[in-house]
């Protein structure tokens, strides 16, 4: 019988085992060290962070898998989404629900439009010069950051209040949390499953997956693969913007946010393996958990945030030393 498991390559099977063992280890450490309730809170925070990172990282991974362009502007897209959403939320004159939905819609649409123009106008003419594509996205990220700073100023923005429905409290592991955190996790899960269905169950998805394998062959079969490229780029940038707006009610908006999440997303994509969707999904949870547990550990034992800040990087170095193409990447 053919199952998911039997279809995997031995390398990927080993990676799955590694991930399961590692996560179990993290859970065990946090339970033994922090006690049941704190451990639960930490794990919840980790999953939350993982979902947010996933929104940025999935775009990065999808775009790289199909277009071979590493989009360093992904962090800037998150930033633009957050600030524009914040702006729309505060400039509209309607009920909170409408303003919240408008913020999400407006931010995502604007960033999608920026992504479309960027792909069609700037990245597409550079396919013959791949180094310049990377340099261009890197430079554009700096420019976008500058734009946002110029328009909205240096001061961090306060978290905005989500609709009352999402602002209610619930108790988990003896900690009172707002439902909004559940909403973020739900959003992340929905996107994870949505993109999975898009990739595996639709016609466009099969074209994308074929394009990852061999774009020239797809073109030869009479499919306008360039249009699919643009579509994937738009999808990736929109996901990042969505992550940005989802962040604002949770922790406000700061200029550093873009780079922070870009670094996290890069670590996720490297750990998961470039261009592998399941790798990105798994790695974002792993990175989120690692970060949260390290934060809690350094809080309880070392009184120093350094461990938390460097933990995911150490994780990335470890994974690269064990498997240079990431956990679920295509082996060389």
């Amino acid at each position: 019988m053919q199952t998911y498991w039997t279809n995997l390559t031995p390398q990927h099977r080993r990676s799955w085992l590694l991930v399961v063992v590692y996560v179990a280890l993290l859970l065990a450490i946090s339970w033994l060290d922090f006690g049941y309730n704190t451990a639960g809170q930490t794990v919840f925070r980790g999953i939350l962070l993982g979902m947010l990172v996933f929104l940025v990282a999935s775009g990065l991974s999808l775009i790289f898998g199909l277009l071979d362009v590493l989009n360093f502007a992904q962090g800037a897209f998150l930033l633009i989404g957050a600030y524009v959403g914040y702006d729309i939320y505060h400039s509209l004159d309607a009920s909170v629900e409408v303003r919240f939905l408008a913020a999400i819609g407006g931010g995502v649409l604007l960033v999608a439009a920026i992504g479309a123009v960027m792909e069609a106008g700037l990245i597409r003419p550079l396919y013959e010069r791949p180094i310049f594509q990377i340099v261009l996205t890197f430079g554009l990220a700096a420019i976008f950051l500058d734009f946002v700073e110029r328009i909205y100023g240096r001061n961090p923005k306060q978290p905005l209040s989500p609709p009352p429905l999402l602002n209610e409290k619930f108790t988990l592991f003896q900690q009172s949390l707002s439902v909004y955190r559940l909403f973020i996790i739900g959003l992340g899960l929905a996107m994870m499953i949505g993109v999975y269905i898009l990739l595996n169950r639709t016609r466009i998805g099969i074209i994308i997956r074929a394009g990852v394998q061999d774009p020239e062959m797809v073109q030869a079969l009479g499919i306008n693969v360039r249009r699919v490229f643009t579509l994937v780029f738009i999808l990736g940038s929109a996901l990042a913007a969505l992550g940005g707006i989802a962040l604002v009610p949770y922790q406000g908006a700061t200029l550093e946010m873009g780079n922070q999440f870009l670094i996290l997303a890069i670590v996720v994509v490297v750990i998961g393996g470039m261009g592998s969707y399941e790798g990105t999904a798994v790695a974002s949870i792993v990175v989120g958990l690692t970060r949260a547990v390290a934060e809690q550990l350094s809080l309880e034992h070392f009184d120093a945030p350094v461990l938390a800040e460097t933990s995911i990087l150490l994780l990335m170095i470890a994974v690269l030393l064990v498997q240079p193409s990431g956990l679920f990447g295509r082996g060389e």
Partner: peptide, 13 residues
């Protein structure tokens, strides 16, 4: 590209 991303992350750290 792995090299590029790694150096970026290292400097940021």
């Amino acid at each position: 590209i792995y090299f590029t991303m790694f150096t970026l992350a290292l400097a940021e750290m």
